[in-house]
């Protein structure tokens, strides 16, 4: 496997190698010189067709800490606005000698197509409503760091599952790693094929909360909503928002996660988001470490170290 496109294509061993490598790399973030010489002379292109703060910065920081050269490309202000196609853009980057392309695109499947056009590694940084594998890896890493294990962990993923690439990647990866995922959402915000996913589904947050070790709140993706999926923001918040009362129903060791950016007051109250049992800020720091691990394992040798035999 030269690419990281879906969390579903990672075997258990691959996923654990990534998490263990991240664990060792985390020590580098603690020292005064945070740079490693490993990817000197390699070029990583960040190809972002959609807005992003943390993912783009996170990939940039990860590549730079490994001494790779980073070229940032965002669709705004590029030839894309003149009508250049993804393929032509990809071939341009290829000609410039990109060893890896990190792509965020509004269309599901764009990284998959890109992988057939370029020789370098393709890393999916979020494609439409499909997948966001490095987010799932950093979430799993954050859970393991806080709770010490993943096997048998009960994880509730709550909210806008329909539009969430984070939810799909998390369900696939956490299933591979032995955690039990329950999706909690109003029926209108669940994808049609959800019964084929390796997880449970519930419409009742209050019933799921006391049994959960991890509660992952998803952002309500208003920008992708072109129909009315729920009557009003207030009603959504009352049934599926994590507020103080619901938070109190969690057991004492349970943690709260959110991939960001948050709608404070909608899916999560400010009080819960800022509590010591929320890992939201931690997740951002862990993101750099996990992405360093992914870039190292894909680009660090003569061939990638994950994906077994090619």
């Amino acid at each position: 496997m030269r690419h990281l496109i879906s969390a579903g294509e990672l075997s258990r061993d691959d996923a654990l190698v990534i998490l263990d490598t991240a664990e060792e790399l985390a020590r580098v973030s603690d020292r005064s010189i945070k740079k490693l010489p490993t990817l000197r002379g390699r070029t990583v292109v960040n190809l972002f067709y959609e807005d992003s703060t943390r993912t783009r910065i996170s990939f940039e920081a990860a590549a730079k800490r490994l001494s790779a050269d980073v070229i940032n490309f965002s669709a705004k202000g590029s030839s894309v606005s003149k009508g250049e196609s993804l393929k032509d853009t990809a071939l341009t980057l290829e000609a410039m000698g990109a060893d890896a392309v990190v792509i965020r695109h509004g269309a599901s499947g764009a990284p998959h197509r890109l992988a057939t056009w370029v020789h370098g590694s393709v890393v999916n940084a979020g494609d439409g409503t499909h997948e966001h594998p490095t987010q799932a890896l950093l979430d799993a890493y954050s859970m393991r760091r806080r709770l010490g294990r993943l096997e048998g962990l009960k994880v509730a993923v709550v909210g806008d599952v329909l539009h969430s690439r984070v939810a799909r990647s998390n369900v696939l990866l956490l299933h591979t790693l032995g955690a039990e995922v329950t999706l909690v959402a109003p029926p209108t915000l669940l994808p049609v094929s959800v019964e084929t996913w390796p997880c449970q589904v519930s419409y009742d947050l209050d019933a799921v909360l006391p049994k959960s070790d991890v509660v992952m709140m998803l952002r309500v993706q208003l920008e992708r909503m072109n129909a009315s999926y729920f009557p009003s923001a207030r009603e959504y918040s009352r049934r599926y928002g994590l507020d103080r009362d619901r938070f109190a129903r969690l057991h004492d060791d349970a943690i709260v996660m959110h991939p960001g950016p948050m709608n404070r007051g909608m899916e999560i109250s400010a009080e819960v988001a800022d509590s010591p049992r929320s890992t939201i800020v931690e997740q951002v720091g862990n993101g750099v470490t996990v992405r360093m691990a992914v870039l190292y394992l894909l680009l660090g040798g003569s061939e990638p170290a994950i994906g077994g035999t090619a």
Partner: peptide, 21 residues
């Protein structure tokens, strides 16, 4: 002290898992 990330032969072999520092 793990030296994997500092090796001069990294590109001759597949990326290796890291040792502990």
């Amino acid at each position: 002290i793990d030296i994997t990330m500092y090796r001069d032969d990294l590109r001759l072999r597949p990326a290796r898992p890291l040792g502990r520092t």
